[in-house]
Amino acid sequence: MWDIAFFTAFFAILLLPFTPAIKEWLLKKDATPLWRVSTNDEVRHFSDRFKVFADKELSMAFIKDSYKIITPDSEFSAARSNKLFRVIDKKVYVPESVRLPDNNVYTQEIYAKSHVEFGRKTKIYAALVLGNVKLDDECIVTRWLQANVIEVGESCKLFGRVSADKKIEIKSNCIFSRLNAPIIEFGAQDNIDREDLGITQDRQKDISHLRKVKCELDAAGRCIINGDCIIPPYSLISCDLIVRGSLKISHGSLILGNIKAYKSISIESRVTIEGSIVSRADILAGDWSYLQGPVISEKNVKLGHGATVGSVGQSSTITALAFACADNVLVYGTINVRLPEIDTADD
């Protein structure tokens, strides 16, 4: 009898810690496949979705009331604003061009059919503007912004996805995480035509002044270099180049293939790279350099004055931990960064 009692107690105690496991096995509380993540990585995903949603809502009269409608004559426009800090807690619908006052906070989406100018220090949750947008200095976008042309003032913070159908112009001291437009302009633009300087992707251009660098190629036609590498000025390299160290490409060189370096890539002025540029560390591009890209850095990307990434016919991407550039930089395509600015403490 006592034997049975002992073994019952023994097995009960032994099984006790396994109860949650047995329970989960039988009840299947968490037995579905990992959920499919619905968020889409396409830059315009949210704005496109919002447009469909907003058009539908605005066509229904009774839901229309959930929108704050702002016209040039309404009290929320800059023309009639008393410039006080104000929080607009509703979705906003802007049917015609308007300038909005400074210091306002929009906690929900804005849908504008025409051009919109946001005053200084405006905080925007998300905005879909079918016309052009002008953000005055120190504005903040927290989720997304989509417009035809976006003009960004100084010291703005563009968190989330910012995309334009035609162009994004960014003044100095701004931070951002994801930009996408056919043309993204940084800083004041010189009125110098890049084509006059020979800085566009032009396969017909004269390369007679360049010296072709002889590379030892592997079976796949790549040149692999163990250690650091310096490419002399005015060199022409037509293969893919992999450097297991740092890479310096001197002034005026032309690289027709893709390049990769385990350490930093330093590109001097007037260098053209027609392939992708990949580095586990920094990528520093000099003045008037041209990079077709994509430019992929696991640390920072810095572009010098007049540098270009991508081209009119073929957009490109810069993806890096952080990004910085001088004035007159043009990027055709997308910029993705993970930190707001380059940490100079590492330098």
């Binding site: 968020t39 968190f159 989330g160 931070i175 995480s177 994801r178 993970r338 707001p340 403490a345």
Partner: peptide, 23 residues
């Protein structure tokens, strides 16, 4: 400066959570 940078990074990281906090 370091504190300011940290605050900025935190803000920035929070804003990116929605896109990059995929599992």
């Amino acid at each position: 400066t370091a504190r300011k940078r940290k605050e900025l990074n935190d803000d920035y990281a929070k804003s990116r959570l929605q896109y990059h906090q995929h599992r």
